[in-house]
Simulated assay, not measured.
Amino acid sequence: MKPTNKYTMKETMDVAKQASLEIEQYLWQQPETLGVVNLEDDPYFQALDIDLAWETKDGVFLVEIKGDRYYRTGNYFFEVVSNQSKNSLGCFMYTEADFVFYYFIDEKELHVLPMPQTREWFNENKDRYQQKTVSTSVGTGRYFTVGKLVPRDEVKGKQVVNLSVLDKMA
């Protein structure tokens, strides 16, 4: 399958970095927050696909962050194969996070998806959705990621927060 989008590793990392920074700022503004720890550079948590630990009055929640620039499509891109040539499982399929924070960085719209409930629903319905392959260039090479385009309005149980409103309040 020919990829329809091409990215560079730098572009991918820039989106991820911006998403992490803005989400961490948002979490620190929440009255229930006791602490936020960025785990992105910790190999143990990388293997579990967990980016943040968010400590609240109700406990510690593990968070996976997915930054995206394609709000206008109306879809989420749920990664099912991370690297096609290695046949490695996509992050959406194995993250051990309590929540996936799917963040549309240009609109500053955060979608909080409860896991594993969202993944269980997805696994029951994934054959209904269009598969898409995207490529990412790394140095002189390239790898291909496979995901499903899932209409946002079909995913139940999510919470949506507009972070630009919080910026104006700060």
Rank of each mutant, 00 (worst) to 15 (best):
T33N: 03
T33A: 04
G35H: 06
G35Y: 05
V37H: 06
N38C: 07
L39H: 00
L39E: 00
E40Y: 10
E40L: 12
D41F: 12
D41V: 09
D41Q: 15
D41T: 14
D41P: 04
D42I: 10
D42Y: 03
Y44P: 03
Y44L: 14
F45D: 03
F45E: 03
F45A: 03
F45V: 03
F45K: 01
Q46Y: 11
Q46E: 15
A47D: 15
L48R: 15
D49W: 11
L52S: 07
A53F: 11
A53M: 14
A53G: 15
E55Y: 09
E55Q: 12
E55I: 09
E55L: 13
T56G: 02
K57I: 15
K57W: 08
G59D: 04
V60Q: 03
L62I: 07
E64F: 04
E64L: 05
E64N: 14
I65D: 00
I65E: 00
I65N: 00
I65H: 00
K66T: 05
K66V: 08
K66P: 04
K66Y: 03
G67T: 08
G67E: 08
D68F: 01
D68L: 01
R69E: 15
R69A: 12
Y70H: 15
Y70F: 14
Y70G: 11
Y71K: 01
R72T: 13
R72W: 12
T73A: 04
G74S: 07
G74V: 08
G74N: 05
G74Q: 04
G74C: 08
F78Q: 00
F78S: 02
F78G: 02
E79L: 01
E79N: 01
V80C: 04
V81I: 15
V81E: 10
S82V: 01
S82W: 05
S82I: 00
N83L: 01
N83Q: 05
N83H: 07
Q84C: 11
S85V: 10
S85W: 07
K86A: 14
K86M: 14
K86F: 11
K86D: 13
N87S: 13
N87F: 11
N87W: 07
L89K: 12
L89A: 09
L89D: 07
C91R: 12
C91K: 13
F92V: 10
M93T: 03
M93V: 05
Y94D: 09
Y94C: 10
Y94K: 13
Y94V: 11
T95F: 10
T95Y: 09
E96Q: 15
E96R: 15
A97D: 08
A97E: 08
A97Y: 08
A97C: 11
A97K: 06
D98T: 13
D98R: 10
F99G: 02
F99W: 13
V100F: 01
V100T: 12
V100H: 01
F101Y: 14
F101L: 03
Y102F: 04
F104M: 10
I105P: 12
I105R: 07
D106C: 09
D106I: 12
D106H: 14
D106T: 12
E107V: 04
E107M: 07
E107Q: 12
K108C: 10
E109N: 10
E109D: 11
L110P: 09
H111Q: 10
H111T: 06
H111C: 13
V112K: 13
L113Y: 05
